[in-house]
Simulated assay, not measured.
Amino acid sequence: MSLALGFDLLLASALLWSAWRALTTVRLDHAVVVFIVFGLLMALAWARLQAPDIGLAEAAIGAGLSGALLLDAYGALRRREAERKAP
């Protein structure tokens, strides 16, 4: 087994693991972080498939922009829950 094939298998298993964890994680903040990790791993997979333009778009939009929006939405949700609990 060559080093490139071993890396590709490791990347594929990390992609599957992170996708599974993002879907099955109970805590919402952990799910958002794992989703961002999934986007970064997907960008690396696109680069390994010799599609660097798609990889850059995935990193910028999939991991960066979507991750930032999800983290902001999670923060707003936490603030709203704190306001409801406050007397």
Rank of each mutant, 00 (worst) to 15 (best):
Ala22Ser: 02
Ala86Val: 02
Trp17Tyr: 14
Leu65Arg: 10
Thr25Ser: 15
Arg80Trp: 00
Leu23Gly: 11
Arg79Ser: 01
Val34His: 08
Leu40Thr: 10
Leu28Val: 15
Leu44Met: 14
Ala59Gln: 07
Leu9Ile: 13
Ala82Lys: 01
Ile54Ser: 10
Gly67Arg: 01
Ala73Val: 08
Ile61Phe: 05
Gly75Ser: 04
Leu56Tyr: 08
Thr25Trp: 15
Ala31Ile: 05
Glu58Ser: 08
Glu81Gly: 02
Glu58Gly: 02
Ala86Arg: 10
Met42Ile: 11
Arg80Glu: 06
Ala51Arg: 13
Ala22Leu: 05
Ala86Lys: 06
Ala43Asp: 09
Arg78Asn: 09
Lys85Glu: 10
Leu16Gln: 07
Trp17Gly: 14
Pro52Trp: 03
Glu81Met: 01
Ala51Trp: 14
Leu49Cys: 02
Leu11Trp: 09
Ala68Arg: 06
Leu9Asn: 06
Leu16Ser: 04
Asp8Pro: 05
Ile61Gly: 05
Leu70Ile: 12
Ala57Met: 12
Leu77Gly: 03
Tyr74Leu: 14
Glu81Gln: 04
Ala14Trp: 07
Leu69Met: 04
Val32Gly: 08
Gly62His: 05
Phe38Ser: 07
Gly62Ile: 06
Ala73Met: 01
Ala47Met: 15
Arg80Ser: 05
Ala47Asn: 15
Gly64Gln: 04
Ala82Asn: 02
Thr25Arg: 11
Thr25Leu: 15
Leu56Asp: 11
Leu10Cys: 11
Leu10Pro: 00
Glu58Trp: 03
Leu3Arg: 01
Asp29Glu: 14
Ala19Arg: 07
Met1Arg: 04
Gly39Phe: 07
Leu3Tyr: 11
Gly6Glu: 15
Leu41Ala: 03
Gly39Cys: 09
Ala59Leu: 06
Thr25Ile: 12
Trp46Val: 10
Val26Cys: 12
Glu58Tyr: 09
Gly55Ala: 09
Ile61Pro: 09
Asp72Cys: 11
Ala57Ser: 13
Leu65Ile: 14
Arg21Leu: 14
Ala59Trp: 00
